[in-house]
Design a protein around this nucleic acid. Structure first.
Lengths: 125, 125
DNA sequence: CGACTAGTACGAGTTTCATCGTACAGCCTG
DNA sequence: CAGGCTGTACGATGAAACTCGTACTAGTCG
């Protein structure tokens, strides 16, 4: 039988507390496609986002602004949407803010080891 | 110190015999970039190629024709070149033929677990 | 040498994607 | 309710990338 999701020591798995807003539209676990996920991760900016979420998440999830990315807002919207639609991140609306976190359990279940590669990535030699 | 490269049971590691033709130009191990490799693998046709190489390689390496892909030759050239330039495959010229194999050791060393995901991939539900 | 063959090079058409400006929607606070 | 804030939607632009036809190169074998 499947063990409960295992994660590498560096990647914190944070259970979702109840009573959260509904997530924005996203693919279900069995709709996750490797080629789509890899495509979403084949971009340095998006790798930066996901890696930062994996390694520096202290709270449950984070707004666009938290990342400190020096790009116009509409560019960031584009990339966060790409990550969500590929199934890499989950986004919820909290009043004004739209917060993101990585779907660690789902990705570990479908593509074990993939997030470890992202966590180990370094921006550009 | 690093253990010698480990591979999952399903992926055969075949040592390269001496006296082969020089490989075509390719990135060295430390030039491999995660975003580039993921980009090369974010295409269903190329995933098919790499997966078939991983699971069905009995000989050392294989020609374009071996894959039985129903695409024009120039399209195949394009994809094989993309895989080689990303560092996923190595190509050698044997007389008329250009044969490919996956750089299993190099990829396992830099991105452990990645090839297992490719081997476990299924074309389209 | 001439035919055959594996594969490349080049170029065009099409699509997809990244980037970003601008305008707008929704929420909060005074 | 007005202003400020987070973030989206839309649209334009330019750059890649996929697809493929055609012409070509380079081995091989009769």
């Amino acid at each position: 039988m499947p063990a409960t999701t295992t994660a590498s020591p560096s990647i914190k798995v944070i259970p979702e507390p109840p009573g959260l807003p509904e997530p924005l539209p996203e693919p279900s676990v069995d709709e996750l496609r490797l080629e789509t996920v890899l495509g979403a991760l084949s971009d340095p900016l998006r790798l930066t986002i996901v890696r930062k979420l994996l390694l520096e998440s202290e709270d449950f999830d984070h707004t666009c602004g938290w990342f400190g990315l020096d790009r116009p807002k509409s560019s960031l919207t584009h990339h966060f949407k790409a990550l969500r639609e590929a199934g890499v991140t989950r986004q919820r609306q909290y009043g004004l803010e739209r917060r993101s976190h990585v779907r660690i359990d789902d990705l570990n279940a479908r593509f074990p080891g993939l997030l470890d590669l992202v966590a180990a990535w370094t921006p550009q030699r």
